[in-house]
Design a protein around this nucleic acid. Structure first.
Lengths: 334, 334
DNA sequence: ACTACCCGCGAAACCGCTTTCACGGATCGC
DNA sequence: GCGATCCGTGAAAGCGGTTTCGCGGGTAGT
């Protein structure tokens, strides 16, 4: 908007017969201003339709009121309802604290990439990261003093504030459940193993296997990318290479649904021939047929936890990492 | 970040032996600067790790590089995968043009509400609106010169730039399809009738009914809110009040799935007893059983179209409203 | 009545960029 | 050789707030 298009403090000050500093004091709730002057300022604001310029305020105060929500992936991730849900959890907490969400969905890449440049530009007061493949940027930003939270356990630096779900426990429970139902050959379709969550889910699956007295063959472990298509693709691979396959643990519901789609198209009934368990408990899990047995995580709460940790840092308060529990939801597919 | 924590133009200028204006010219690509001076500036930037302060630049230039994406609803909307998908379309186009997305999910409310205040604060260069219940704020912002786009046909002001899907045509096709399959008593579960999209879908349904020679009873028209739960609730109502019900057109896939859940729980098979059609063609439509017959809209393209219209306005280019087609996707439920 | 202290308020500096306008040197034309 | 014009560059104003520091008036204590 062009200069003069909307009133500034100068105009309000002139109208109210005070200085600009007084206008600033009044509008920022400084109680030391004489009530009569304060009243005149408020009248002028009302009369002239004044709106504070947040950009100028940000420059002067060093605070923008913006928090970046960074998803280290490409935009296709939004086909997974997980992202909308977790983003809504984050947004709710930020909005309640008068903050706004800048959404960045892009490979985080190098320390000199687009996301890195943006986060160092002073336009956001903090950042919340999802799906991190490396702690490098996060470590760099932390050194620069930017408040931040990652969702998922840090790769290397335990100093990084984080929130997570009990990935290991959930995967372990899912695999145990399949084994308890008589499955002998349980495959896994993981997420991107570059992320700690995917690795922890793999570890939970391996631990359950270990406890059964043996380990899965290499061919039972497929690296997906959390997409429906990768679930389909890897289920196809498992069908073709593992004739005795009788169970699949997919690291999210979308891949589980992809797997079920391929299994049933191939004449393998679920759960008759192959039992399937997912992770998330998205709506798709309950409306599919067979309804999906899955590991439920509270995705809204995960987002809210992340939002709460960033707020605590902005307020200079203490905080602890938060790890949310998971629970097995038994439906038809296992 | 505190003053002195990171280098400014003053430091770069001193190191390079030029003025701050020259530093600004070089970093903003002004070719008139002598190459040798430009080289010295770039060296200083590299050596000192300079990052431009976007807040200061925004104040000086009047451009922040931020676009608000405003959803006139509460955060529970994100349980509908539509929102993640359309937001990803918008974000992709904005990111390609060097812009960032500020996500605001909140009832838009009055001209003096939180959303209104924010949008008038100068922190965003434009706004894209979803699910508008009133054009009042949009009209006010347009008068103030804020570039904006709404998704959905404007309530009253044809001057407002908008993108939309062919809601009327899609709903008409859905209802026609049900009737062509022999349905005599077709109910509709609408979205929030305060939005033009929901109203257009209702109108499409009514037009198909009109062409069949009669109109639906009042009891066949239920106002939902696009949520799974409201689909369940209204299907229950239709079952209880319309004994001859043999078809349902739900205005989105979530409500359709909700309806199917209730119908089957009540022993009414789909499509045996009651045929169901949805709208959107989300993944849930293809993975449910019965797989959902639905009206497909290209949600990513809708988001991209909105992004393109805001970019055109920012660049001072001409543009036309964009209305995307729909198509019937026949699966098992009808 | 005088001195010391307190407090509300205003002028102006500052935040860190962008952009304007003026200056001086170089170049070109007569 | 001189005058006119052009262009690269720097000083500083401006964008619109926040905050600091000093001033003057009022009050309290001796």
């Amino acid at each position: 908007m062009v200069p003069g298009a909307r009133p500034t403090y100068a105009v309000i000050a002139k109208t109210a017969g005070v200085s600009e500093a007084t206008v600033s004091r009044v509008l920022n709730g400084d109680e030391s201003v004489h009530p009569e002057r304060a009243r005149r300022v408020q009248e002028a604001v009302e009369k002239l339709g004044y709106k504070k310029n947040r950009v100028a305020s940000a420059l002067a105060s060093g605070r923008t009121g913006l928090i970046a929500v960074v998803i280290d992936d490409d935009l296709s991730v939004f086909s997974d309802p997980f992202w909308g849900t977790v983003t809504s959890g984050v947004s709710r907490v930020l909005q309640e604290n008068g903050l706004h969400t800048v959404l960045m969905v892009s490979p985080v890449g190098l320390l000199e990439g687009g996301v890195a440049h943006y986060l160092k530009s002073g336009e956001v007061d903090g950042a919340i990261f999802f799906v991190l493949h490396s702690d490098a940027l996060v470590n760099d930003l932390k050194k620069r003093g930017l408040p931040l939270v990652i969702t998922g356990t840090p790769h290397s630096n335990a100093d990084i504030p984080f929130v997570d779900t009990d990935n290991f426990g959930g995967a372990y429970t899912a695999t145990k459940h399949l084994m308890n139902q008589g499955c002998k050959k349980v495959g896994i379709i993981t997420g991107d193993i570059g992320t700690t969550a995917a690795k922890q889910r793999l570890d939970g699956y391996l631990q359950a296997y270990r406890e059964s007295g043996h380990l899965p063959g290499k061919g039972l472990i497929c690296e997906g990318d959390y997409s429906f298509e990768s679930g389909k693709r890897h289920a196809q691979t498992l069908l073709e290479t593992q004739p005795d396959l009788d169970g699949i643990f997919a690291s999210n519901d979308l891949m589980a649904m992809g797997a079920i789609t391929v299994l049933e198209a191939a004449g393998k009934s679920v759960p008759g021939h192959v039992r399937v368990v997912g992770f998330d408990d998205a709506l798709i899990a309950q409306t599919s047929r067979p309804a999906l047995t899955t590991i439920r995580q509270d995705v809204v709460a995960l987002g809210e936890a992340a939002g709460s940790l960033i707020i605590a840092q902005l307020n200079g308060e203490d905080f602890e990492p938060i790890i949310l529990p998971t629970q097995l939801v038994i439906r038809e597919s296992a």
